[in-house]
Every structure is written in C-alpha cells, then in structure tokens.
C-alpha cells in the first residue's frame, strides 16, 4: 500500500512540470509573433518611406535655387503649415480646412457614384441578359464611354442650369460605363447550370436577379465599381475646378488664382490619399461580399 501511494505522488508530480514548460513556450511564441508582425510591417513600410524621403530630398535640391519656379518641400511645410496640421478648422464660408473640402467632394462622389452604381448594374444586367439589348446598346456605350469627363460639363451646365447637379451628372456619366460593361460581362458569364437551376425552380425575373444574377456576377460588378469610383474621383476634382463651390477641386483653382503654390501641393496630397482610400474601400467591400464565390 505504502509503495502504491509513493507511486501515486510521483505520477501526480510529473504533470506539473510540463505545465510550466508550456507556459514558457507560450510566452516565447507571443514574442516571436510580435517580432514577425513588426518584420512584416517593416517590409511593407520601409521601402516606400525610403523612396518618399529620397524624392523629397531630390525635390528640395532641385527647387532650392532662387530662380526655381516651384516651391521646395521646406517652403511648402512652412507656408502651408496650418493646412497640413489642422485639417478640420472652420473660419467661415470660404476659409475651411482641407478635410472639410475633401468631405464635401466625397459627398458629391457618393451621390453621383451611388446613382451610377445602381443604374449601371441594372443596365449591365439588361445588356448581359438580352441579346437584342446588347446589340442595340453596346455600340452606343462603347462610343460614349470614350468621351472625357469634362467634355460633358458644358452640356450638363446647359441642361441643369446649376453647378452642383452638373458636377453630379459629370461624376455619374464618367463612372457608369465600367459598371455597365463589367456587369454585362459578369451576367453573360453566369454558368448555364445556374440558369437551369433557376428555371427548374421557376424563379421569376426579380428573384433571379437578386438570388442568382447579382451574387454570380458580383466579382465582375465589383471590378466595375472599383474602376468607376477611381474615375469619379478624377472627374470630381476637374468638375469642381470649373463649377466652383467649396470642394477640394475648387480649392486648387482658387489657390492657383491667388498664386498659393504650396497650398496646391498639399491639396494634391490630400486628393491622392483620399483616392487611394476609396479604391481600397471598394476593393475590401468586394472581397467581403464575394468571399467564397470565386472558388468552385
């Protein structure tokens, strides 16, 4: 009996040690994970940071002479400091921070591009679904889509007699084509089997559109939306330069007229970063919505 109890305590004593060991390895693993994350961040951030610093140095050197026509980065920093440091100031109707101006432009893009997305998907579905709609509409689309955004502006100003709806229309008409064309391709590529499933179930047009067509064509639709939102951001800046108002585009035009070159450069940075974010936003939405659909 006594021997047995000794054995028991021995047996009990053993599992304690491995438990300690596990605790140590867990800590070690966590540290390695942190290191790995830091390493990944470094590989993602260091190269672009180096390139940007190099570009700034080259720019500074190139524009440092007194006869240079463009301001060097140091001058931009000094003269446009309040624009860089305080994006959200608000000192009255025409004196507001750049973030406000970007938001106003984004609001226009949201309305114009939102309409383009809805109408574009609907028209794309029609063109993709019906052979006759494609034969009739596709040539028209192919011609109209090559018209540059600003070429539409005089016509829309004449039609709407107001700058804000004109700007919205320019965004709409610029961004709708890739949405239509990509949706049509996606709808045309819906496998025949999915259509047969829908026919056997006797899905009506609306059910087919919502339950089969949109999810099946979603990867294509989002490709179109991504191109479309890039184009609409291009168009809004150009349209605002001509129509006025308080958007970021008009700010650039205004700064040019009062020879504030550093302000223009800061505005360009804002536009670029915003456009990049928009693109990533639509891409992320697409990746989220179409998860699992691409794999067969």
């Amino acid at each position: 009996m006594s021997i047995q109890t000794v054995e028991d305590t021995k047996v009990k004593a053993f599992p304690v040690k491995p438990a300690e060991v596990i605790a140590f390895t867990a800590k070690a693993r966590r540290r390695i994970d942190l290191l790995a994350i830091a390493g990944k961040l470094a590989t993602a951030l260091v190269p672009p940071a180096v390139v940007i610093i190099l570009l700034l140095v080259v720019w500074q050197v190139a524009c440092s002479s007194p006869t240079a026509s463009l301001p060097p980065p140091s001058q931009v920093w000094n003269e446009a400091y309040d624009l860089i440091a305080h994006p959200f100031f608000d000192n009255g109707p025409q004196d507001i921070g750049l973030a406000w101006r970007v938001l106003i432009s984004l609001q226009r893009v949201a309305i114009g591009f939102g309409m383009a997305a809805v109408v574009g998907v609907a028209l794309g579905a029609l063109v993709g679904q019906s052979v006759w709609a494609m034969r009739g509409l596709d040539p028209v689309f192919q011609i109209l889509r090559t018209v540059p955004p600003l070429a539409w502006l005089p016509l829309s100003l004449a039609a709407f007699r107001d700058s804000n709806p004109s700007a919205l229309f320019v965004i709409f008409i610029t961004s709708i084509w890739p949405v239509i064309i990509n949706t049509a391709v996606g709808v045309r590529n819906i496998p025949e089997d999915y259509r047969n499933v829908a026919r056997i179930l006797r899905l009506n047009q609306l059910e087919f559109f919502v339950k089969i067509m949109v999810p099946a064509a979603a990867p294509y639709i989002f490709t179109g939306l991504r191109i479309g939102i890039g184009l609409s951001w291009l168009a809004i800046v150009a349209a605002e330069m001509l129509t006025g108002g308080v958007g970021i585009g008009f700010f650039i035009w205004d700064a040019w007229n009062s020879s504030r070159l550093p302000d223009i450069i800061v505005a360009l940075a804002y536009i670029g970063v915003t456009g990049f974010c928009l693109d990533r936003l639509v891409a992320a939405a697409g990746a989220f919505v179409t998860r699992g659909t691409t794999a067969k």
């Binding site: 496998p191 089997d193 047969n196 499933v197 056997i200 999810p215 979603a218 659909t293 691409t294 794999a295």
Partner: peptide, 19 residues
C-alpha cells in the same frame, strides 16, 4: 412544355450555388 420543380434535375456537376 417548361421546366418545373415536379421534374427535379440532379446535374452532373452538382450546380450548387457557391455563395
């Protein structure tokens, strides 16, 4: 004269909707 659920089909390549 038209397809319907009373004549259900099992397709060769299953035709399940992947989403």
């Amino acid at each position: 004269d038209s397809p319907g659920p009373e004549r259900a089909v099992v397709f060769q390549n299953h035709s399940l909707l992947p989403w």
